[in-house]
Amino acid sequence: MTFIIVRRLLLSIPLLFIASIITFVLQAFVPGDPARTLLGLNATTAQYEALRESLHLNEPILVQYWLYLSSALRGDFGSSIFTGEAVLDTIGQRLPVTLSLIVAATFVATVIGVLFGVFSATRGRVVRRIVDVSSLIGNALPNFWVALMLVAILAIGMGILPATGYTSFADSPSGWATSLILPVAALSLGGIALVAKVTRDGMLTTLELDYIRTLRASGVSRGSLIWKHALRSSGIAVVTVIGLTLISFVSGSILIENVFALPGLGTLIVSATNKHDVPVVQGLAITFTLIVIFTNLIVDVVYGLLNPKVRIR
């Protein structure tokens, strides 16, 4: 197990480097000039050039990246060009919002998806057809469209839940949960459908294996066959799709946060990109990459727990 963790961590080093340089280069091609945005249209040419020099915007792109990388390796990710606040502080303030959304959506997609998948695998063809249709619909509907429909129906039309805004857990646990219901529902819909279908397909294959028939003939209870043996044997495929679902929620959260006006990393990256705030965009790219790396690490560890053979590879 230790080897799996160490290998994943070592592989993450070049991944972080590649993600940072790609983000930095692509950001250079985004239209806009932070110096011009800061000074406005009435600034003189001398003021404009002086600000660009102080921000190192007049340097070649590789020089700019080297200056950023050398600071980042010392733990200094810079400050926002517009607010002057340290990038790590800005991200730290907003990270709990995004993590709450992603983790809650993953939990909902996992629990409901696995239950639907097991139910459809053990209840006949009609239920399987329903899961297939639900899976197609869930994957076909864009999550931002689902979010807008939920707002229109449940928030504006019925007034049951708040349309926008976020309440921190420290301020009010109930308010925190209420503010996340609609965003989590919109984000997790496609994940529920996908997890349900993969669980169903894996269960159907496993239930036809010889050792399951042997256990059934030996008098093992139906519940034990389904939940202890069949679901565990299907666990590798289910865990894989859950990991992929969580990673997809990282990008999906950007749209959802902007629809529901949540003060998370999604709204921050849109604002920073529009302003050409390079230090903030770079910090967010590293943060999202770390979330993906951590997710893959958890998946690898769960693989080892489900299949001992993985631990010795």
Rank of each mutant, 00 (worst) to 15 (best):
S100E: 01
D33C: 11
I5W: 13
V310W: 05
S253T: 13
A163P: 07
L115H: 00
A86P: 00
F249Q: 08
L207G: 08
A177F: 12
L255G: 11
R94V: 07
F249W: 11
A28V: 00
G202R: 07
L189P: 01
D201T: 14
P279V: 03
F107Y: 03
L15T: 10
A28H: 04
R125Q: 08
N139C: 11
V133M: 12
I13C: 09
T110Q: 01
V239P: 00
A121Y: 12
L38S: 11
L255V: 14
T205N: 14
A104L: 13
L207K: 07
L141M: 15
K197S: 12
A272Q: 00
L161D: 06
A86S: 14
S134V: 12
I312T: 06
V103K: 02
A152V: 07
I4K: 09
V127D: 01
L88F: 09
R200T: 02
Q64G: 03
V238G: 02
L150A: 02
T287V: 10
H276K: 14
S120Q: 05
L150T: 02
L136F: 09
S120G: 08
I137T: 13
I312H: 08
V6N: 01
Q27D: 02
L204G: 07
A72D: 09
S179K: 06
H276M: 06
I13V: 15
D132S: 08
L136M: 10
L11Q: 14
P96F: 06
V278W: 00
G124Q: 11
L182F: 07
T214Q: 09
T287H: 06
V25H: 05
Q27H: 10
A230K: 09
F294I: 15
V131E: 02
I291W: 11
S221N: 12
G138E: 03
V87K: 13
W176Y: 15
P96H: 06
V292D: 05
L38A: 13
T205A: 15
V118H: 01
T273P: 01
R36A: 15
L305D: 04
L189V: 13
G252D: 09
L246C: 09
V238Y: 03
L150W: 10
I61F: 02
I160G: 00
S80V: 07
P263H: 09
G78C: 09
K275W: 00
L154T: 03
G264E: 12
V103A: 02
D132T: 12
L284D: 06
Q47P: 06
V301S: 04
L189M: 14
L182V: 14
L244I: 13
R222Y: 11
W176P: 01
R129C: 04
D300Q: 12
L246S: 01
E59H: 14
T178D: 06
L187H: 02
V250P: 08
G304M: 13
A43T: 13
G266K: 05
G92N: 04
G219E: 06
G219D: 10
L244Q: 10
R213E: 12
K309S: 15
V301H: 07
S248W: 12
L262A: 06
D171G: 15
V310C: 08
V111R: 11
G304Q: 11
L39Y: 11
A163Y: 04
G138R: 03
Y48E: 05
G243P: 14
H229Y: 15
S100F: 04
P173C: 10
V127K: 09
V131P: 00
L180S: 02
V184W: 12
G159V: 03
